[in-house]
Design a protein around this nucleic acid. Sequence first.
DNA 1: TTGTATGCGTTATCAG
DNA 2: CTGATAACGCATACAA
Lengths: 351, 351
Amino acid sequence: MKFEAVTIKDIAKALGLSTSTVSRALRDSYEISPETKKLVLEYAEKINYHPNPIALSLKERRSRSIGVIVAEIANSFFSQAIDGIESIAYKNGYNVIISQSRESFDREVINLHYLTSRSIDGLIVSVASETKDFSNFKELHDRGMPIVFFDRIVNEIPTHKVIVDNYQGAYDATRHLIENGYKLIAAIANNEILSITRDRVAGYKAALADHGIKEKDSFIKYCAHGGLILTEVEQVVTELMKLKPGPDAILALGDKLTTGSLRILKANRFNVPDDIGLIGFSNSDTTELIEPPLSIIKQPAFEMGEIATDLLIQLIESKHPVTDFETRMLAPQLIIRGSAKNKKGKPIPFS
Amino acid sequence: MKFEAVTIKDIAKALGLSTSTVSRALRDSYEISPETKKLVLEYAEKINYHPNPIALSLKERRSRSIGVIVAEIANSFFSQAIDGIESIAYKNGYNVIISQSRESFDREVINLHYLTSRSIDGLIVSVASETKDFSNFKELHDRGMPIVFFDRIVNEIPTHKVIVDNYQGAYDATRHLIENGYKLIAAIANNEILSITRDRVAGYKAALADHGIKEKDSFIKYCAHGGLILTEVEQVVTELMKLKPGPDAILALGDKLTTGSLRILKANRFNVPDDIGLIGFSNSDTTELIEPPLSIIKQPAFEMGEIATDLLIQLIESKHPVTDFETRMLAPQLIIRGSAKNKKGKPIPFS
DNA sequence: TTGTATGCGTTATCAG
DNA sequence: CTGATAACGCATACAA
């Protein structure tokens, strides 16, 4: 037995009314007599009638659902953001349809086509780290699809954006390391093309410069896949540790890069972080439980999701074209844990 | 400018054909001449035509989307499961619509009504810890909605279920503590009504019994909200520590209970886990990076999501009614980290 | 106050 | 080979 829903027609037939009368009664129209209304409402309740949202969507040319594209759902930052997205969507009567790019450009494009063509009213996106060509987003946006970008944004597209102050976060983190005596600070970053990467690296470099430390190209490593593959992180950490002099501290500019670095340093039996200063972006719910002094830059992911959704719904429901787009920038949270002063400046050989 | 999609009608008008011809050409029907086909296909490509999935849904009486209800998206276990769900759904051309109950029965019911009434083809559910009344699920299932339960299942409803061997997981964890010299092992569990809670507590009790340790009621604590509220965990940990004799080890039978316990023990400056043995369920990506000997019971959440979705799609697409439902039981992974033998059996006073 | 007819985008059925 | 028409479920302009 397949799931068979009751329709307005069933009610009309059972009550000897027309479908339009039933429809109006259900919508509590003023032009229906109280008796008829009561009759219809009670019967509808009795047989558990619910309007078919698909028929409504077809009629109203809107689906009351929003699409979300993120790199990976099982990433704390994104799952927290989706939490925020779902919360606001729920409050406003919207469904949330999620899909993941897994950092792949091709999958992102496929998901984009999959979600669009009118099955969604709007889109919330954090672009894949692989993506260099934004023409698909651009075209879609030009054709009138409301889009809000968060975290990994596309600067070229004029629409609302929600980000954290990546520059400041990286700057503060770097300064923290410097103030604790570290001087040879390496940075492990995400794909160079990403806006967040550029901002974070800029903050790192600025902090070094402001404290009279010369930046070294060999101390900056990029991971094309954002650390999605652990060997990628292992590779760059190994390269860093082989340098002479090697770094005495690492700044990990991404969630997966932070945990990846930590994992590899631990696996190689360093006394982490006694010997190596380590600070990194992380939104995992348990990084705070890791022994200090690993310090953390945490992003307000939930709030970002909430704000993005708020803005998107404004776009969707605005009667007039919006031309005044805003970029909301939130402050990241720096969680300083313990001191890292003990064995400063002593690089460790990497076997 | 609102998002205006291209329809079959547009193509028909532009090419001077009828909509049916266009439709058939697009679907590569045998009864259309090669020339017409080519013409239509090329024009469709050119103006970027995509069929409206909503119209298709209305016609085919299926939405090719599946609903998911979990307690909390921003919980590693669930986000990993959703990852698995999305993977399989994507491969099969299904959309995933997510919603969260936040462990509330009311919200669960609302989401249920929200998702159903034919806007979804099937449902994957892990029930809220608050839920005691399963009649809504039962009714929906009786009316023909394909449902697959995972993790927190409803035994009374005859359908596919995906779980881990919670009994064995708790049993092995308890035995591990016993083998490391702990004798006063307390258990902190989720809401008593949940199937997973009953199974886990049963495993814990069986392990005690098999090793000649008498269980004590005062050593078993239940958290109605599953540790979603930290004060709830604080409450029970405090109660446990006030006991004389207090426990020398804690078995946390839920993700939030594990991290909650750890957080509270640390906040109270115990030398955790030197003094208190601690082992608990956790699917967080970074619990492994926490200093041992906190040991972990990890659930194969991703696989559970995959399997649940596979089963659901089978249900949805099966031509004939399914009566032969299966319960897939997966093995949890016990991650033993370091030794906990140092200060065994010495309960710590709780201030 | 209620009923009839139309359209949302698509495909299936029937004519031609 | 192609076109006209009905239907999916609903809401609404227009009639009565």
